[in-house]
Simulated assay, not measured.
Amino acid sequence: MGVQIVCRHSDPVWHPACSVSTKSGLGGEARFRLRQAMQDMSRSGTAGELRLDALIADLWWRVRLINTDILEEEAKAGVFDASQPTYPLLALNLRARRDNLVSTIGVLEQRARSMSEAA
């Protein structure tokens, strides 16, 4: 028989125990240990916390990139005051996007804190 990957998790997170290739003739005890390891990992919540932390870090990186883009647009136009009528439209749009990302990050950080306190 062929090789199959055993995973009964409904979430798309990578689980180390799920990446074990097994032959279909895997013994009952080994199957039990594999299933137990997968259940322990899904209950721990650490995978979700790690994903959330990675998402937050990625969003902060994007905020820094947008800040750089805003500064470049302001420098090109020679206008640094957003209230000026000659302020670049792209910089205004980037500011709005950055502000939305920062707001989203705040919500995600609050969720991460509540997850860590609950654990």
Rank of each mutant, 00 (worst) to 15 (best):
Q36I: 00
E73T: 03
R62M: 06
R33H: 01
L34P: 01
L34I: 01
G45Q: 04
Q39T: 09
V20Q: 14
R62Y: 02
S24I: 04
I56G: 00
A54D: 05
D69P: 04
K23L: 14
N67Y: 04
C18T: 05
G45C: 05
I70A: 13
I66T: 09
S21H: 15
G27A: 13
L55S: 08
A30D: 04
R51G: 13
L65Q: 10
L59R: 09
A30K: 13
A57N: 02
F32D: 02
A47S: 07
N67K: 14
L50R: 07
T68Q: 03
K76M: 11
R33W: 00
P16K: 06
A75P: 00
M41F: 09
W14G: 15
T68A: 07
G28R: 10
R43I: 08
R64I: 00
E29H: 03
I56P: 00
D53L: 07
S24M: 11
A75R: 13
C18R: 01
K23H: 15
T22G: 14
L65F: 08
V63D: 08
A57R: 12
A30E: 05
Q39N: 09
L71Q: 12
I56V: 06
I70G: 10
M41T: 05
S44G: 04
S24F: 07
E29I: 08
E29W: 01
D40Q: 07
L52G: 02
A30Q: 10
L71A: 15
G48C: 05
W61Y: 06
A75M: 05
H15S: 06
C18W: 07
V13R: 14
